[in-house]
């Protein structure tokens, strides 16, 4: 207790440049600090000042974020970290003028030709890419409306999970419509058989079931790949053929010999009617027919991009 007190407050009394004394901004899990005297260590918590030339030891599931001056470090791998090396390396940092020039350059890239736009799309980590997939990567269905048909719910794999718990919940009443446990990262549900009401909003979410852990929360830590995202959808009892009627009656639809082109037209009509999952299926079916068809590939990429599935959209463009 006494040692901890000294570690916490002694630097405040002695150091003129308090901001340069490394301060732990966030700590979770077993973290020990050897303050220089061999064989002695104290536990590290949020608010601990790391003085001297000791070392930090991170145990399993431990995370530490510390700031010295304006330099930030984040440690999440178990191991021993000498304090002297933590803030030794200056972070990659550009001057204001460099950042300004880069910003203008990115703007010029985006304003150039279509070809350059794709290049900028792939290169930019700024405004174009933004928040990437917005947490939706690998999730299907990812919104919109769903038909009363068999629907495959898919989510990304979580390394620590032994199984997954899927929930379908009424967004208005929070009543759980269905809970299912799956071994794999997808499960097929016949929505016609569930007690879902027409034109009502629901959401689905997945929780990975993992071995028990002492980690209290994911505050500040990398979020598990799948937990925490609620995907909202509207259940509609309309028939697929009814939605597709305006397209299937077109002469171009009936006249074409290409099944892929039909799927493309269907996908567009389905997206227009907000049936995103069905539209996604239609695009995939079209690509299965003609994998190298550039029109379908680009249209699918644009569709994915519009609905925040940018990683997959990028893959579509890159595989041209």
């Amino acid at each position: 207790m006494c040692k901890a007190f000294i570690l916490l407050f002694f630097p405040l009394l002695l150091c003129g440049q308090v901001r340069d004394v490394p301060l732990v901004m966030y700590a979770t899990g077993p973290i020990d600090y050897e303050g220089g005297t061999p064989g002695t260590s104290v536990s590290v918590y949020t608010g601990t000042y790391l003085t001297g030339q000791g070392a930090l030891s991170l145990g399993e599931d431990a995370t530490l974020e510390a700031v010295s001056g304006d330099r930030f470090v984040r440690l999440s791998e178990p191991g021993r970290y000498p304090i002297s090396e933590l803030f030794e390396q200056e972070p990659k940092s550009d001057g204001f003028i460099d950042r300004f020039i880069n910003f203008v350059r990115r703007g010029l890239d985006q304003s150039a030709s279509t070809e350059d736009l794709e290049h900028a799309y792939q290169e930019n980590q700024g405004n174009i890419s933004g928040l990437g997939d917005a947490g939706l990567s690998g999730l299907l269905p990812f919104g919109g409306s769903l038909f009363p048909v068999i629907t495959t719910f898919t989510w990304p794999e979580d390394d620590a999970a032994t199984s997954y718990r899927l929930r379908v919940v009424d967004s208005l009443t929070e009543a759980v419509v269905l809970t299912a446990t799956a071994r794999d990262t997808s499960v097929q549900l016949d929505l016609a058989g569930l007690y879902l009401q027409d034109d009502r909003r629901y959401y689905w979410e997945v929780f990975p079931n993992a071995a028990p852990s002492n980690t209290p929360s994911r505050l500040g830590a990398q979020a598990p790949a799948v937990a925490g995202t609620r995907i909202y959808f509207t259940f509609r009892t309309r028939d697929r053929s009814e939605v597709l009627a305006p397209v299937t009656e077109l002469s171009i639809y009936r006249g074409t010999a290409s099944e892929a082109q039909r799927r493309l037209l269907e996908a567009m009509a389905l997206e227009e009617a907000d049936y995103l999952y069905a539209a996604d299926r239609a695009y995939r079916d079209g690509l299965a027919q003609e994998p190298d068809n550039p029109v379908i590939r680009r249209a699918y990429a644009a569709f994915l991009s519009r609905w925040n599935q940018r990683s997959r959209a990028r893959t579509m463009i890159q595989l041209r």
Binding site: M1, A4, Y45, T46, A134, G135, R218, Q222, A223
Partner: peptide
């Protein structure tokens, strides 16, 4: 959950804001 005293030392003489502050990951609530 903690029974220890040391983790609470951080609050001394500081402004404490209690609220919903999950992670900053894009898929956080």
């Amino acid at each position: 959950e903690t029974e220890a005293e040391d983790p609470l030392a951080v609050f001394r003489d500081r402004i404490v804001i209690i609220g919903f502050i999950d992670s900053q990951e894009p898929d956080a609530p």
